[in-house]
Every structure is written in structure tokens, then in C-alpha cells.
Amino acid sequence: MLSFGQNNVLSVTPPEKVTAKAGTTIEVKLSVHVRPGYHINSNQPSDEYLIPLKLSWDPGSLSGAPTSLYPKPSMEKYSFSEKPLSVYTGGFEITTRFGIKDSASSGPATIPGKLRYQACTDRLCLPPKTVEIQLPIEIVK
């Protein structure tokens, strides 16, 4: 709904090209960095109304549904919360496993992804935002 100037609150290092053999499972790590002073909700926030961090990929016919593994969040207490919140701060990595199909065509491809997050400081929050990601991949037989 809203567009905001929060480009630098969270940054994602563009993933390097990976080579994957058809019929195998690969792991891809995505490096994320949250600007100092800000935190983002983890993938399992402490409150039902908080917006979770969510990484989603659209591998098309290259792989089955990918599985993303999020790092252990930290439990931080903020002035606006009665209880500690499950959050990520600083730098962290999200690992995704792709099961490359036997039928995947060999050659270069790109798997698009989206990282949705919602950031706050101790005093204010920014609206949820989605970062577009491109994973370059080379399928070999």
C-alpha cells in the first residue's frame, strides 16, 4: 500500500551464481544486513499482529517447493514492548534448499525470490517492504 524511503534499512547481498546438477539438492545462503538501530521481526514473531520475515522463491519448473531455514532469532526487550520480541538485528544468513528436478533443462536460469520484512527502531516502525532477489543458477546434467 505505502512506499517509503527505507531502502537502506535492510540490504541483501546479491547471491552469487550457483551450479546445480539436475536431480540433486542444493543449498543457497542469502546474506541479509539490518541497519544499526533497527530490528526486523523474525520469521516467528512474538505477537500475532507482527509481520514475520518471509523469504519466498519461485523456482518454476526447476525445483520443487524450496525450504528456507532461518537463523535463531534473538529475544530483545524494547521500550515499547512488555515482553522480549523475537527479532533479527545486524547481519545474518537465511539458507534455502532447492531440490533440482531431474527434468530441469540444462543451461543458465534465474530463480526470482522475495524477502518481506518489517523494521522498527525503539520508537517507530516502518511499513512492511519486499525486496526482490534474483538467484542466478546454471543447471548441468
Binding site: 505477537d47 499482529y49 507482527l50 509481520i51 524494547y78 515499547f80 514492548s81 520480541l85 518489517q118 522498527c120 525503539d122 520508537r123 517507530l124 516502525c125 511499513p127 512492511p128
Partner: peptide, 10 residues
């Protein structure tokens, strides 16, 4: 405000 905003809740 918004429901997802912690400081708003206070």
C-alpha cells in the same frame, strides 16, 4: 498507526 506497529500499541 498500524496493528503491526509496536510503539503504536503503547
Amino acid at each position: 498507526w498500524a496493528t503491526w506497529c509496536g510503539p503504536c500499541k503503547i
